[in-house]
Computed example of a mutant assay.
Amino acid sequence: MGDFFSLLEKNDIGRAVIIQPSVYNFDNSATIEALKAKPSELRAIVVIEDTHDFEELKKWNEYGVRGVRVNLLFNSGINSAHVRKLATLIKPLGWHLQLLIDVSSYDDLYEEFKDIDVDIVFDHMGHFDIDKGVEQKGFQDMLRLLKENKAWVKLSGAYRVTNEAYAPYNDVIPFAQAIINANENQIVWASDWPHPSISVPTPRYNELVDLVDAYTNKEDIVKKIMEDNPERLYGFTN
């Protein structure tokens, strides 16, 4: 975690959220230890089985865990059959499900997720197929969930869907703007550091921060995305 803490200090980051990497599967020990080291500054999203001991989850909640990551794109050990069981397990804690999926691969994304009984967060803007355009059904279904306050969307991973090599990844901007226009109150930003398994040159941290300004020139919306919304979603306190 040394590199992570150095990144926070170098960029004067007062709050951050750790997302359990797929490579560690269900071993959340490093994530939990980081939370213990900086309990007021950090929150985390973990990866668990739907049979995980609830008493331990309650302890993790006290440390700062606020949700569970479900990787249906690269399969971190959880499949879609577990999603509703996970939702039932974490609902008493007020946690959310962070979904890493390709929205363009779903025939009816809206029906699939409209009645999940906890907040859901679509990672990497839905990890859509950029060549299918903004009007592709899966992306539009995600926007509908967002508009109806049935979902959140994370503005991250632009370099994972773009056909361009360098920021600001202009071909992604219309998608990000459509997300913001759908519901500016249910969007958060993320750097996706340390940028694992990407096929383009690794961008600098400040280039990723600047992407938000490429998506909107309204300061009040930028503040929502970068400060107000994550404070609400992850339970940061002043």
Results as ranks from 00 to 15, higher is better:
12 D>C: 11
40 S>V: 09
226 M>V: 02
84 R>A: 13
191 S>F: 02
59 K>Y: 03
17 V>P: 00
71 N>H: 06
49 E>A: 11
171 D>V: 12
10 K>Q: 15
54 F>I: 15
61 N>W: 03
115 D>P: 04
103 V>P: 14
119 D>R: 11
201 P>E: 10
70 V>K: 05
5 F>Y: 12
106 Y>K: 09
68 V>R: 02
232 R>T: 10
25 N>Y: 08
108 D>E: 06
134 V>D: 04
212 V>Q: 02
92 P>V: 09
133 G>W: 06
126 G>R: 05
23 V>W: 11
15 R>N: 13
204 R>S: 10
202 T>R: 15
75 N>W: 05
26 F>Q: 08
146 L>P: 03
66 R>Q: 14
234 Y>Q: 10
25 N>M: 09
131 D>V: 04
107 D>L: 11
31 T>Q: 08
24 Y>H: 11
87 A>Q: 08
35 L>W: 06
53 D>G: 00
146 L>A: 11
227 E>Y: 12
136 Q>I: 01
105 S>Y: 14
35 L>F: 06
48 I>M: 03
7 L>C: 00
143 L>D: 07
155 L>N: 11
213 D>T: 03
91 K>E: 15
166 Y>M: 10
207 E>L: 06
101 I>F: 08
85 K>I: 02
142 M>R: 02
211 L>E: 03
189 W>V: 01
73 L>E: 14
159 Y>N: 14
165 A>Q: 15
197 S>W: 04
96 H>N: 14
61 N>M: 02
117 D>R: 12
218 K>M: 07
200 V>S: 10
40 S>A: 14
152 W>D: 01
215 Y>W: 12
219 E>W: 00
108 D>N: 14
214 A>Y: 07
227 E>S: 11
56 E>Y: 06
190 A>T: 01
207 E>I: 02
92 P>D: 06
133 G>D: 07
218 K>W: 00
7 L>K: 00
74 F>P: 00
75 N>Y: 13
232 R>F: 00
1 M>R: 01
108 D>V: 04
62 E>M: 11
133 G>N: 07
21 P>N: 09
70 V>C: 15
80 S>M: 07
15 R>Q: 12
136 Q>D: 15
212 V>N: 03
174 P>K: 09
228 D>F: 04
21 P>S: 08
197 S>G: 04
27 D>S: 14
90 I>E: 03
163 N>S: 15
131 D>W: 00
114 K>Q: 13
23 V>A: 14
133 G>S: 05
64 G>M: 08
215 Y>I: 09
93 L>S: 08
33 E>S: 14
39 P>N: 07
148 E>R: 04
141 D>L: 05
227 E>W: 05
226 M>G: 01
169 Y>M: 09
48 I>A: 06
56 E>L: 14
33 E>M: 08
139 F>D: 09
61 N>I: 01
106 Y>D: 01
62 E>R: 15
175 F>S: 05
50 D>M: 07
216 T>P: 11
27 D>I: 13
113 F>T: 04
218 K>L: 09
198 I>L: 15
196 P>Y: 07
144 R>V: 08
136 Q>V: 06
55 E>T: 10
175 F>G: 07
90 I>L: 04
206 N>Y: 02
49 E>I: 01
